[in-house]
């Protein structure tokens, strides 16, 4: 496994297969929205998140941005039960705070991590099969997998990994691991997708494809993306929330946020100046 297997040839995202994945009736998602009120997270006296309000509706593709230490990832951690938080957070009428992570996941909340965390020793297919199986009974679990579940098959096509299904996930290229993570969220049937830097380490072409994929998923489901890449944000965000020192600084469309003088001051300063020339804004990280 430690062998330096040459990077697996890049697959392409399959939008037709995605339509199959998203074939569920729209009514299922109609009442989905994320409502966060007064979210507060404290670590030993340090307030990481301080009274954040956030409303994301179904069909939105919300980007969560902010300088390092603004509390973006902490918000995601709080919503998924990884850290204890005060305030209230509801998704689809279900309270998220104060419940164990696996129960939150079962009520339709899925997340990814900054570092792609797939199961390196298991194959791509096994990764997706595990993601699909949280509702399996003990008897199914104790048997072998006889065939590939249809939703897993569709997800394999969607994220362009069908040709490497039997390879261990550890040998995938970084971008492919990120796609595998998105695929796992799809088969997990997450209705709220919380993505932590999903395009980190991807090539320009891969970012483009990932952005389109997220846009299409966002039409149906509720998607929140934590991202540093400003160009990616401009190209694909339908709305943006700017966090600064644990508080919401601004919220609105990309244009509104960019025009906000406070945002320009704390965060977008250099990016706003470089608005005319896109190449200048490619710098992924604004310190």
């Amino acid at each position: 496994m430690s062998d330096t297997t040459p990077a697996v040839e890049a697959g392409r995202l399959d939008t037709e297969a995605l339509e199959q994945v998203l074939a569920a009736p729209a009514a299922r998602f109609r009442h989905d929205y994320l409502e966060v009120r007064g979210l507060r997270v404290e670590f030993d006296g340090f307030v990481a998140v301080d009274g954040v309000d956030l409303t994301v509706t179904q069909g939105d593709l919300r980007f969560l941005i902010g300088p390092n230490g603004a509390g973006k990832t902490t918000v995601v951690d709080a919503l998924t039960g990884l850290v204890a938080a005060a305030g209230s957070a509801q998704f689809g009428g279900v309270d998220l705070l104060g419940r164990p992570s696996h129960r939150i996941a079962r009520s339709g909340v899925g997340r990814t991590f900054q570092t792609a965390s797939v199961f390196d020793e298991l194959t791509v297919l096994q990764n997706l099969d595990i993601a699909a199986g949280a509702r399996r009974g003990p008897l199914t679990l104790l048997r072998r997998r006889r065939s590939v579940p249809p939703e897993v098959e569709a997800a394999l096509e969607t994220v362009g990994l069908a040709h490497v299904r039997d390879l261990p996930a550890g040998v995938l290229a970084h971008g492919q691991k990120q796609w595998l993570e998105i695929g796992m969220l799809l088969v997990q049937d997450a209705r709220l997708l919380l993505l932590d830097e999903p395009v980190a380490g991807m090539s320009q072409a891969e970012r483009e494809e990932t952005g389109l994929l997220l846009q299409r998923i966002g039409e149906q489901r509720t998607v929140v993306v934590v991202e540093h890449d400003m160009e990616f944000l401009r190209a694909f965000a339908s709305s943006v929330t700017v966090l600064h020192q644990g508080k919401v600084l601004a919220e609105g469309t990309v244009a509104q946020v960019q025009a906000d003088p406070r945002v320009v001051e704390v965060y977008l300063g250099t990016g706003a100046h470089g608005r005319g020339s896109r190449t200048a804004a490619t710098s992924t990280e604004v310190e």
């Binding site: 998924t80 164990p100 992570s101 696996h102 996941a105 899925g110 991590f113 797939v118 993601a131």
Partner: peptide
């Protein structure tokens, strides 16, 4: 942790 966020205990 990843398993936990997939809905398993």
């Amino acid at each position: 942790n990843r398993v936990r966020f997939l809905g398993y205990d």
